[in-house]
Write a protein that binds this DNA or RNA. Structure first.
Length: 581
RNA sequence: CGGGGUGUGGCGCAGUCAGGUAGCGCACUUGCUUUGGGAGCAAGAUGUCGGGGGUUCGAAUCCCUCCACCCCGACCA
């Protein structure tokens, strides 16, 4: 492609609305433009990257035996009413009416459509297992779209849906998808981790998320430094904590702690280890209000607590509301004499002689002992794991944490849709069998942003070869200089002929402008044609990642670049195997 | 939905408090010079000041109203 004939509207200045690196560079490099909140146009350079990701995904899905289809973006309400989601899905579902006043929605996902297809077309167990996928534009009317295409309302997603005869078959399909996903992210040249995830309201057997590791990630994942264990912080558990050193326990006492409300203040004032304190927090849920107890140095996790209590929803009460429910203002709440039903974190099970609020302003209790001073409450896993906690899977490991961007999710759906929508095939013994389903998503447009979060420097994007909009950029320094212009044209033609993806910067611009734009665009290999080295009969090949330029003659450049492209693709693919499951 | 903020040329912004006929930098056009990291000089084009209504001799500026976008929070099969 010729730069001079392309729409690559790079920006010198940072657009004000961009908060994260990927969004900034996508706007500045002219990959995307915003049309409405969370809705973007993909310009030529951006679209090329998007297509690269699509193709990596498509290749592996096909290799794993999935069949590509394309379902409608607009779906009739009837289908959603049938599955019950028309009522359950909130304002996130974009609802439409046609001219006859019939209700539709713009699909945020396609379980209903695929299940409808399956019940119409699948007749026999011999057609199973079947796995269908599509790469489709989805729309979810997110409450708060942000970070450009990272969390847009309209986005490109690969979604796959599998149908198996039984649980064992689903397990096999699931494993095949898991393996395909690993290969996809390896092929994209990304550092990622597969983590165990919260299964949410669907409550399937288990599910895994794939996270691209990046500082700006919206999710926190915990992983073992020793074994393969990795889980979303919303789900991660720790092994049993080592018991604290035994200390003599005095009788329970009430002590004055004027104005000391936080764990830090109380433990410092009383000269006690925060690990020997207990904090009490009031939560409200559909099951009513509870007093949750955690060790002073531990952090509450809403989702784990919700799951532990078996509640549909749960939230921390605001201090005034908490005081109203518990009868004492926050900062002095405690389990002794509490009126709300109590649940304590597992870490408190073996704690003895602890400090806690006295349910009286400006007073705490010390030397509190289960059974002697109050009945043992129900214990459950309520807290977020901390860095350094023991691994729940292996003896030696400690947990670490990292931030990640969720780019993929594999999920055992079970019979939820196949049953409610009546999918049935004839089984081997003649009777009807309801297939068991799985679903598998990949955020294609989100991967583009995630890749930039992971691969950039101060000057712009540093694309991995597999995702780069072009593999090679020819930087012709001065198009009015006939000899170097001719050399650039020749090299351009040779590379095109060889199937290398090449952008020829033939604009009549000063070299500085071209260098800056090239850095922004982040094309992995750059050939300088012109200037000093050309006078000596040489071209310079530069790597966007940095390092010294390599000189080549115009005659050997095409072959040399082809080799480099091939080496880079090989080297990057799978280079991060050690960081994955 | 609650809280905060911003809408002025393609982009980034000043001007709004103290109303007087719109400005700066970048980008764009033309010419000359320049050409290894976002050039210099000269000339030029580009604005419903988010929309509607009101006050006023006069509104980017004051008042009312609507809208869009951004940030924080709640939400997220």
């Amino acid at each position: 492609m010729r730069y001079s004939r392309s729409l690559i509207p790079t920006l010198k200045e940072d657009p004000g609305e961009a908060q994260v690196v990927s969004h900034r560079f996508m706007l500045r490099s002219g990959m995307i433009r915003q049309l409405a909140s969370g809705v973007y146009t993909w310009l030529p350079i951006g679209l090329r990257v998007l297509r690269k990701v699509e193709n990596v995904v498509r290749r592996e899905m096909n290799a794993a035996g999935a069949q590509e289809v394309l379902m409608p973006a607009v779906q009739p309400a009837e289908l959603w009413q049938e599955s019950g989601r028309w009522a359950k899905y909130g304002p996130e579902l974009l609802r439409l009416k046609d001219r006859n006043d019939r209700a539709f929605c713009f699909g945020p996902t396609h379980e209903e459509v695929i299940t409808d297809l399956a019940r119409r077309e699948l007749r026999s167990y011999r057609q199973l297992p079947a796995n269908f996928y599509q790469i489709q534009t989805k729309f979810r009317d997110e409450i708060r779209p942000r970070f450009g295409v990272m969390r847009g309302r309209e986005f490109l997603m690969k979604d796959a849906y599998s149908f198996d005869l039984d649980e064992a078959g689903l397990e096999q399909t699931y494993q095949a998808m898991f393996a395909a996903y690993r290969q996809i992210f390896l092929n994209c040249g990304l550092k990622f981790r597969a983590v165990e995830a919260d299964t949410g309201a669907i409550g399937g057997a288990y599910s895994h998320e794939f996270h691209v590791l990046a500082e700006s990630g919206e999710d926190v994942i915990a992983f073992c430094d020793h074994c393969q264990y990795a889980a979303n912080l919303e789900k991660a558990t720790s092994g049993p904590l080592p018991p604290l050193a035994e200390v003599p326990v005095d009788p329970m006492a009430k002590v004055s702690t004027p104005g000391r409300k936080s764990i830090a203040e109380v433990s410092e004032f009383l000269g006690v280890d925060p690990r020997r304190t207990v904090k009490a927090m009031v939560v409200e849920s559909d099951l009513g209000a509870f007093l949750l107890l955690l060790r002073g140095d531990h952090e509450f996790n809403e989702i784990k607590s919700r799951n532990a209590l078996g509640a549909q929803w749960l939230k921390l009460a605001e201090p005034p509301r908490a005081a109203e429910l518990a009868g004492t203002s926050t900062g002095y709440l405690g389990p002794v004499g509490a009126t709300l039903p109590m649940v304590a974190d597992l870490a408190l099970e073996g704690l003895d002689g602890f400090v806690c609020g006295a349910n009286e302003v400006d007073f705490h209790r010390t030397g509190v002992r289960w059974e002697r001073d109050l009945p043992r409450p129900r214990f459950a896993d309520l807290r977020a794991v901390a860095v350094g906690d023991p691994c729940p899977r292996c003896a030696e490991g400690r947990l670490e944490q990292a931030r990640g961007i969720e780019v993929g999710h594999v999920f055992k759906l079970g019979y939820k849709y196949s049953q409610s929508m009546g999918v049935a095939v004839q089984g081997p013994e003649g009777g009807e069998v309801t297939p068991i389903m799985g679903c598998y998503g990949i955020g294609v447009s989100r991967i583009v942003a995630a890749a930039i979060e992971q691969n950039h420097d101060a000057n712009g994007i540093v694309w991995p070869m597999a995702l780069a909009p072009f593999q090679v950029q020819i930087l012709l320094m001065n198009p009015t200089d006939a000899p170097s212009a001719a050399a650039a044209e020749t090299l351009y033609a040779e590379l095109l002929e060889a199937g290398v993806e090449v952008l020829l910067d033939d604009r009549d611009e000063r070299p500085g402008v071209k260098f800056k734009d090239a850095d922004l665009l982040g094309i992995p290999l750059r050939v300088l044609v012109g200037g000093r080295s050309f006078k000596e009969g040489m071209l310079e090949v530069q790597d966007r990642r940095g390092g010294a330029a390599e000189r080549m003659t115009p005659q050997e450049a095409a072959q040399g670049l082809m080799n480099k492209v091939r080496d880079r693709l090989r080297q990057e693919t799978g280079a991060h195997g050690s960081t994955t499951l």
